[in-house]
Design a protein around this nucleic acid. Structure first.
Lengths: 158, 158
DNA sequence: TATTGTTATACTCTATAACTATA
DNA sequence: TATAGTTATAGAGTATAACAATA
């Protein structure tokens, strides 16, 4: 059997650090997974001027045409004021439109433009590919288990 | 049976929004869980000048006394330059000390001060309480399953 | 009075590029 | 030449407080 030379050279085995109590914490493993996922998702969306957060906003407006900014803010756990610049960006890119809302002249109704819908339809398959990459070491049953376990973490905060 | 008046008044049932394809995505559920966890952990650590990230750094330096800044950077997935200000902060708080490293005068060895160790010992039980809160709807077996599933997401990026 | 969107402002976290001192 | 730490700087993302228009 050949000596795994490359492995030895590349290996961090010698200076592998001790992570103390961290590896057993759900919160820590979740953060590591999140970091890796965001990195891959950003790379996936890189050809487009859309961050992971903006992708979520597009999906929500698409599925809830006419929703108000404050509703969106609640849905994405952002302050009302933060949503203003998010929508400003998407509106500048001609992906979203603010229209006068029926009945309440304070609020604005949000809609995807035709271009916004077109872009979203192009993005969805990329995100689904990304999703397949991140779950590629899990069986379909395990994926379902994982989603259900995640949903039971602080369900009162959703 | 009484009408659940409060529930009706508080309820968002009427304007519950449609999240489209998001709820089935592992990445989305993970992000929601992460948001809720960070919120609780920040509140948990609020009495101390320690963020979730700084807590992790304290644990790592405690478990790897004398580690170099670049090793720490790799361990927490930060750039070398970002670690500088992290350690600056902890050193200003007298929690961490930079010392000359043996043999290589370019690098600095990191150590917790006595005060740093004392603070960390006080923080650990708080973080473990936080961990119990976030897993309180999961059985011990489910917690273990969750940790193991999370470890299998992009394991090549750890 | 309360709510919606907005503005001005600031803070946290992080990265990039260029520098220095060593190796 | 390459590496460890540093500095200056900038960007993303987010929040708080105060305001105008409307309810």
């Amino acid at each position: 059997m050949a000596i795994p030379l490359k492995k030895v050279l590349d290996s961090d085995d010698t200076d592998r650090i001790d992570r103390g109590l961290l590896p057993d914490l759900v919160g820590y493993q979740l953060r590591l997974a999140q970091l890796a996922i965001f990195k891959d998702l950003k790379r996936t969306l890189q050809p487009y001027p859309i961050s992971p957060g903006l992708f979520g906003v597009l999906v929500l407006i698409d599925a809830n045409a006419g929703m108000k900014q404050t509703e969106l803010a609640k849905a994405v756990h952002l302050d009302r004021s933060s949503v203003v610049s998010v929508i400003d960006n998407l509106e500048t890119m001609k992906l979203v439109q603010r229209r006068a809302a029926n009945g309440d002249r304070r609020s604005k109704a949000l809609f995807l433009t035709a271009e916004g819908r077109r872009l979203l339809q192009r993005l969805k398959p990329l995100v689904l590919e990304h999703e397949r990459r991140l779950t590629r070491h899990l069986s379909p049953a395990e994926q379902k288990t994982l989603v259900n376990l995640l949903r039971r973490i602080f369900p009162e905060h959703r």
